[in-house]
């Protein structure tokens, strides 16, 4: 009996608080179901360099795009995954990272690195190795095509499991049923 190839899932974490990944872990024992039906190739704690991201069927993205590195990771993930699913309000709606959009970037950096009360002789990090900040934080759909978005801050474990399970079963969900859909 030849078994069909199990779908591969990989997830990344851009500018977000990791709360969405915590919520992903909150699916608890259903994680076993996920592993039964598919496999997980990469998570935010997997050490991989740009260009070495594994090929996958479902790419999950948490967080918004705030610097040039985010864009590179995002583009690589888009290239490597068949379906790109963003989850969490940072990735899709605008959430805490977006609050800096209401101030000029320079002011935000100065607040963080120079003016904060515990800082002595602060300066804005300017090493060439460091990624550059974008002027405004944007949702990921601004840069790549997103196949499905799960809203929520964070999306509840049930909502995440519902979508992941649908994808593992080979169905692209048409939407999120009422009690599971929430923006907060």
């Amino acid at each position: 009996m030849s078994e069909a190839r199990k779908p591969v899932i990989a997830s990344v974490w851009l500018a977000g608080c990791s709360g969405c990944h915590m919520s992903l872990l909150d699916i608890d024992e259903r994680l076993l179901t996920v592993l039964e039906k598919g496999s997980i190739a990469a998570t935010p704690i997997t050490d991989f360099k740009l260009g070495s991201f594994p090929q996958c069927d479902v790419g999950l993205v948490e967080g918004s795009v705030t610097n040039t590195d985010n864009i590179k990771f995002l583009e690589e993930l888009r290239a490597k995954s068949t379906y790109l699913v963003s989850f969490g309000d940072c990735a899709g709606w605008g959430c805490v990272p977006f609050m800096r959009n209401f101030f000029p970037l320079q002011e935000v950096l100065e607040h963080g690195y120079i003016w904060s009360s515990s800082t002595v002789d602060g300066h804005i990090p300017d090493d060439e190795e460091l990624p550059t900040f974008l002027d405004v934080v944007e949702p990921i759909r601004k840069f790549v095509k997103v196949d499905f978005h799960i809203p929520g801050c964070p999306p509840s474990a049930d909502t995440i499991f519902y979508v992941v399970n649908e994808l593992l079963e080979g169905r692209m969900p048409a939407g999120i049923p009422q009690p599971l859909l929430h923006f907060d």
Partner: peptide, 21 residues
């Protein structure tokens, strides 16, 4: 507004945000 969005199965908006101050 949220209620109407849920009723209309909106998961995200397709338009660019304006981010007015």
């Amino acid at each position: 507004l949220q209620d109407r969005a849920y009723e209309h199965h909106i998961t995200h908006t397709r338009y660019d945000y304006i981010f007015p101050v």
